[in-house]
């Protein structure tokens, strides 16, 4: 089944964006054409503002130009309530707390399992998660 959902994938690594897009396609039936990509926090803020039909944003933390945590704050400062899931190597509890306090809806630490990633996306978007 192909779901008509739209995602914004933010990561400075082209390979990681491909890995995430592949997980969305294989585990959730999301067409790659329904995924917008951003290579840093600056582009993430721009694309989040330009697209008001995004289902969820998957946000890396460590990126050039603007960190994911700062992009998250900027997105929330505009009143944008789109679910944001941090997908990052930053595994410290203090950073998880910081991200949630800054407006993140969920947190996935790399390396991740595609099933876990998609379960957290569904959870954040209020979609049914298989037991």
């Amino acid at each position: 089944m192909t779901l008509n959902l739209k995602f914004l994938v933010v990561d400075d690594s082209a390979v990681m964006r491909k890995v995430i897009i592949s997980a969305l396609e294989n585990k959730m039936g999301i067409l790659p054409t329904n995924v917008i990509q951003a290579v840093d926090g600056v582009e993430a803020v721009e694309k989040a503002a330009q697209n008001d039909d995004i289902t969820a944003i998957l946000m890396d933390w460590n990126m050039p130009n603007k960190l994911g945590i700062d992009a998250l704050r900027d997105i929330r400062a505009t009143g944008n309530k789109t679910p944001v899931i941090m997908v990052t190597t930053e595994g410290e509890k203090t950073n998880v707390v910081l991200a949630i306090q800054s407006g993140a809806n969920n947190y996935v630490v790399k390396p991740f399992n595609a099933d876990d990633l998609c379960a957290k996306i569904k959870q954040s978007c209020g979609m049914a998660v298989p037991a």
Binding site: S13, V15, M16, N62, T89, G91, E92, V109, K110, P111
Partner: peptide
């Protein structure tokens, strides 16, 4: 780079 990023991230944690 991404694989080493993940390894370093876990080590940093």
């Amino acid at each position: 780079g991404e694989l080493v990023n993940m390894i370093s991230g876990r080590s940093k944690t």
